[in-house]
Amino acid sequence: MIRLVSCGCRFTHREGISIERPHGAGNYAFVFFRSKAEVTVNGRSRQAESNSYILFSPDSPHAYRDLERPYVNDWFHCEGEGLEELLRRLGFPTDRLLPASDPSLVPRHILELQNTGREGGPFQEEIAELELRSLLTKLAAAQARDTAPARTLRYAEQLSRLRADLYGSPDARVSVEELASRVNLSKSYFQHLYKETFGCSVVTDMIRGRVEYAKYLLASTALPVGEIGRLCGYDSETHFMRQFKQFAGMTPGAYRKGLH
Rank of each mutant, 00 (worst) to 15 (best):
C78H: 07
A164N: 15
P149T: 02
N184G: 01
P70N: 07
G199Y: 00
E68R: 12
Q114S: 06
F56V: 10
E178T: 09
Q143R: 14
T137M: 08
P58T: 03
T116Q: 14
F33H: 12
R173G: 15
H23N: 12
G249A: 01
I2V: 04
G80F: 07
P61N: 10
L86K: 06
M250L: 12
R89A: 13
R108T: 13
S50L: 04
F123Y: 15
G80A: 07
M241F: 00
F11P: 00
L67S: 13
R230I: 01
A29V: 08
G233N: 03
A156L: 11
R145Q: 10
Q124T: 13
A180W: 06
P61I: 04
T116P: 05
M241Y: 03
Y167V: 05
F76D: 02
E177Y: 12
G91H: 10
Q47V: 15
R173F: 13
G117L: 15
R65P: 03
A141F: 09
P22I: 11
Y155W: 12
S50V: 00
V211P: 00
R256G: 00
L185H: 10
G253H: 03
S52N: 07
I2K: 03
A37N: 02
A37Y: 00
H239F: 09
Q243L: 14
L90H: 01
H192Y: 14
H192P: 04
H23D: 12
A180L: 08
S169H: 15
K245Q: 09
C232D: 04
F123P: 01
E15F: 10
Q246S: 09
G24W: 09
E157P: 11
R3K: 15
L179V: 10
E126C: 07
Y213S: 13
L231F: 03
L135S: 05
S35E: 07
I127T: 08
R163N: 07
P107I: 03
S220V: 10
R230A: 13
Q246C: 02
E178S: 06
F198V: 02
R44K: 08
R230L: 05
I207D: 06
T221C: 02
E49A: 13
N42C: 08
D102I: 06
A100R: 11
G120S: 11
A164F: 04
A172T: 12
C78Q: 08
A142P: 05
V106W: 01
R44A: 10
R145A: 13
G91Q: 02
E178Q: 15
G209Q: 09
G168C: 07
T137E: 05
N27P: 00
A222T: 13
E196K: 08
R21K: 14
G80R: 05
S57D: 12
H23L: 11
H23R: 15
Y216A: 10
P61V: 04
S57Y: 05
Q191N: 01
G168W: 04
E129K: 11
S18N: 13
F240Q: 04
A144E: 12
C9P: 05
M241L: 05
